[in-house]
Design a protein around this nucleic acid. Sequence first.
DNA 1: TTGTAAGCGTTATCAA
DNA 2: TTGATAACGCTTACAA
Lengths: 341, 341
Amino acid sequence: MRTKKVTFADIAAYTGFSKTTISRYFNDPDSLTLENQEKISNALVELDYQENKVGRILASGKTEFIGVIIPNLYMHYYSEMLNQILATYETYGYKFLVFAGSSKADVERKYIKELLAYNIEGMIILSGTIPSEELASYNVPVVGIEREDQHISSVNTDNYMGGVQAAGLLSKSNCDILIHVNADLPDTLPTYGRIRGFVDTCEEFHFPYELILTDLGNTFEENREKILELINLLEQKYPGKRKGIFMPNDTHANVFLNLLIQKYGSLPDTYQIIGFDNSPISKEAVIPISTVGQQISVIADEAMKVLSEQMNERKKRRPAPLREPVHKIIPPILIRRKTTI
Amino acid sequence: MRTKKVTFADIAAYTGFSKTTISRYFNDPDSLTLENQEKISNALVELDYQENKVGRILASGKTEFIGVIIPNLYMHYYSEMLNQILATYETYGYKFLVFAGSSKADVERKYIKELLAYNIEGMIILSGTIPSEELASYNVPVVGIEREDQHISSVNTDNYMGGVQAAGLLSKSNCDILIHVNADLPDTLPTYGRIRGFVDTCEEFHFPYELILTDLGNTFEENREKILELINLLEQKYPGKRKGIFMPNDTHANVFLNLLIQKYGSLPDTYQIIGFDNSPISKEAVIPISTVGQQISVIADEAMKVLSEQMNERKKRRPAPLREPVHKIIPPILIRRKTTI
DNA sequence: TTGTAAGCGTTATCAA
DNA sequence: TTGATAACGCTTACAA
């Protein structure tokens, strides 16, 4: 067993105060005389007191825990988002209990149950496995990021604007046709906005375009194969034409770029490429890739802001009735590199 | 306030049993008659009981929390390690309280203090900011990964073997000189083993080699600049010679590769390149990069194994006296791709 | 400004 | 097999 720990009772005995006074020293020190603060402060050192928050949680109900469920940490978007979420500890003081998703609903339900058992004060959910309606029913403040968010609050990149920016940039690059490749998404996902933004912009400017909605697979090998097929398709359908390609993310844009280079030895001037996210790969590619950048740190900060507002609301004596979910939109930033004009 | 929660007391009242019996239902169900198990089980459903672990922690001292301090999630090695650590939840059931490092010692000390305040049962430390001697003094089981580990247990890649493998592969590729680029590391770091492995192998086979120990910077832009200088240096010093280059990691290997391609339009046959880690970038590069792969999931699993042994030891009535730190070594896996023979 | 006493929701220890 | 009772370490009325 670990050596017995010093508790408020010990400090109280040592200083001659009551446990209450010791508690007050921590929570409202100004209610003690300076002299007594001094005394207790010394006792803490003498006895080598180590804070124990478990008792506090039990008594107060405040855990300062936030649960996070993230689909994976393999994709840079997620790991960087988690990074930024963790960084908010400095400003908000909340600790994060992190689970990496299994896209299986019952497994994620188990995670959530576990989180609730620890009295977390709120959740940040990046995984899309569990419908927002169910998440809302758990009766804990929830903020979703880049997932279906009908019944919960959320913070997302302005995907529509992203689509507009991408189409806008490509349209200036003297292309014959603009092509957006993406998965065949349900329109409840924020990401679907990119497709609409792209299409609306092309139509508005009467620019010829094509939407290729297809699954590019989940592993690098699958991506490679699918994108190889894609290139063949494009070359067959638009031989010699100048093609402006808007890929669903930087990883796929990079695969696309590399396959072209492997095929032709360099990037043919009949291709313009733009990705999405501004992941490191977009910068580190042989030819740095233009991209619609997501402001991950801004998203993380806003998510914590929305969440902490909701968590604070619940701490009040008469919490306002559950408000409508809040949906925040963060503008993307167009980053021009070498794969577009 | 959240709707009041159902507790053991409620279940006890509802079923006519004592709280103790309810507790037993959860911790040692077989000590109840099947019939009574049934009764309680039904009551749980009727009352919609939600587990509360805080009371349990307080009473038992077992939090099932493990603290993790990781330098960042920007580098793939770390994010993937965290990913694998989190995945052990399925087998071990421990929850992870994660902090992303600030390489400032006092900040990390604050993190540790906070972790200890929550009665974590153990720590996994990837950050090297705080000396292992201090970590050991906190009197909680600690496992270090890829950091100085004199006074704590650790799990690391067999870096020496990695150096041997890299030198071995390059030596077979008909090079005139073998070059290992790395930071000027203290020999207390596990990573230093790579340098020794590389040097020993070259010497053993009387292969001409050079060690370039220099800081390549912390940002992509710095890396680029430093590696550009490096290339100039090499071309000046070994013009026309076949050079086998062992880079400190895949990210740097990729920058090296891309700069050569940007300069020559393709990878000159006077260069052989091998990286370290087997990060995604090594696979996704224009020319897939050979690398010494770290078995991240194995490392994470072993770390949890070592840690859980030490944590279990502490739960016994008469814990064995603190054992000497355990140091586990995981072999790397040589991955041959297109940048070497 | 300080103290008393009653919790918070479990588990541990005895006893029956 | 079950129960009574006392912890666990802190907070929070209410009192002084």
